[in-house]
Design a protein around this nucleic acid. Structure first.
Lengths: 278, 278
DNA sequence: AGGAAAATGGAATATCCGTTCCATCGTTCA
DNA sequence: TGAACGATGGAACGGATATTCCATTTTCCT
């Protein structure tokens, strides 16, 4: 760097985690070996930075501390401390007083309704996190593929799954996607409407409702592809489905907040609608 | 403390945030002035501890650092470092790599189904936080009171609110609470079943469905108390309800994940069932 | 193959922070 | 009122951690 030009050093540091991520991707592939190791490790454990020391990050990446130091400067920071500040601020903004508030609600006393809210909120949040963590992207893509090619989508979900199925019916209707909700209103199913070229979306969780299982079995026999939205341990269902989408819903007491299931179901619906329009 | 008894010092430190909070409450009121200042500040800014230094906490509480030090020991820790460890561990368990994973999903590309999941999860999480933050406890208690005294609970919710209403019907049934779901199956309501001594739980969000509003109006005229579960800006509803429970549901695109509404509705149902049994 | 430039690892250094200690002040009880 | 005990604040200490520097190795280009 002979002239006043120092192309790597005096950049302004990323101000947001988003910007950090972008620069990380931009640098990817054009870094020396050790620096690349740092980049890789940081990319996959970005949330560790806020609470780790240089030595810990270095050990995690399998490099000496000085390499981490160079990496920070390569990213535009003056050093590790400045980089860490970014993540600490992001972390404290993420959980402002929400955790405190939750705890206060819980502390109100076991009998208080507000305590129940706190518990259900907590269960819902955990379910969401589990969904984001464990989502099987290829299964999801396959489900979208299958459903978007169907002439009509059949929705099956009873008992605790019925709210999800009925919401999907509403959403599909809004989106202009032909869908039938198998609600069993008159005591019999819409079984005869299952035809070649359709697809079945079966939503069921343990204990699996008999109606849903038999409908899925019937669909398979008819040659209608079955997408199942269920919990991970669904051994009874796996044999009946072409595509298996699993969600772990944390429950509180005997009841589930359904938040993760609905989030996944909604995504599926919107993706299918988008896919059909192209 | 003449004998071997030292009742305040060599206690085992709290192992969980919960235990910490308990000891804090137990100590409240029986601490010297400066220590009490520390306790107050810590109680209201518990989430700051994980990322702050002694000096920062001390400044926040308006005391010298040594006072904070004594406070930590009074709480049973060897010092500030040990106390901070508790909160750091809680924090890192709270956000494992969930944030990273979400970002990765989002980064997949705008058209990807997985991106949608990330968006809906994010919307759901925000809704949950908003619920915990803004919950009106007294309104909730009043709603529980009203519904638990009802002979029969009538559930009204159409269109996007129908899944919530139908889930409540399921839950109430499980809990042995008499509840009627107004589903309008045969093209007419169950209006005539609304009787003195019953209560109506009306679930509706903008744009408010005509059926729900007119049912609520009818209930009022009949002398049946109305509990409304709706969004904060519900001016049309406020005149029709005796108790107003509001939820802010963040939406993504045109659709809502319903997670906060369901969490609140579930809490209401369980609290009502518990109340009736006593 | 040889030399220059870049990269690397580890040791030395400087900074920050937690912790302790002690002198002073206030309070309480005899 | 005075003595004793607890509380308080600040300064000094010690440990840990970020940061820098330099000798050595590796890589790349001629």
């Amino acid at each position: 760097m002979p002239k006043g030009e120092t192309p790597t050093d005096p950049r302004d540091p990323p101000q947001t985690v988003e910007a950090f991520r972008n620069r990380l991707m931009a640098l990817n592939g054009q870094l020396p070996r050790r620096l690349q190791q740092c980049a890789d490790h940081v990319a996959t454990h970005m949330d560790h930075i806020a609470l780790s020391t240089v030595a810990q990050v270095a050990q995690g990446a399998g490099v000496p501390p000085s390499a981490v130091m160079r990496f920070c400067q390569e990213m535009g920071f003056s050093g590790y401390a400045e980089m860490q500040r970014l993540f600490r601020e992001a972390l404290s903004r993420a959980a402002p007083d929400y955790a405190t508030r939750l705890a206060n609600l819980k502390a109100g006393g076991a009998g208080q309704p507000a305590t129940l809210v706190a518990e259900f909120v907590e269960a819902g949040r955990q379910s969401m996190e589990a969904l984001a963590r464990d989502l099987d992207e290829s299964a999801l893509n396959q489900a979208v593929e299958t459903l978007s090619q169907a002439r009509t989508i059949h929705l099956a979900g009873f008992r605790r799954s019925f709210p999800v199925a009925s919401y999907l019916a509403y959403v599909f209707d809004k989106l202009g996607v032909p869908a039938v909700l198998h609600d069993g209103v008159a005591g019999l199913g819409h079984r005869s409407t299952l035809q070649q070229g359709d697809a079945l979306l079966a939503i069921t969780f343990a204990p699996y409702s008999e109606e849903t299982l038999s409908l899925a079995a019937h669909a398979r026999k008819t040659g209608v592809p079955v997408v199942a939205l269920t919990d991970p341990a669904a051994s009874q269902v796996s044999g009946l489905a072409d595509t298996l989408l699993t969600v772990t819903e944390i429950d509180f007491g005997a009841f589930r907040s359904l938040s993760a299931v609905i989030a996944l179901a909604l995504s599926l619906a919107v993706a299918v609608a988008a896919r059909r329009e192209t």
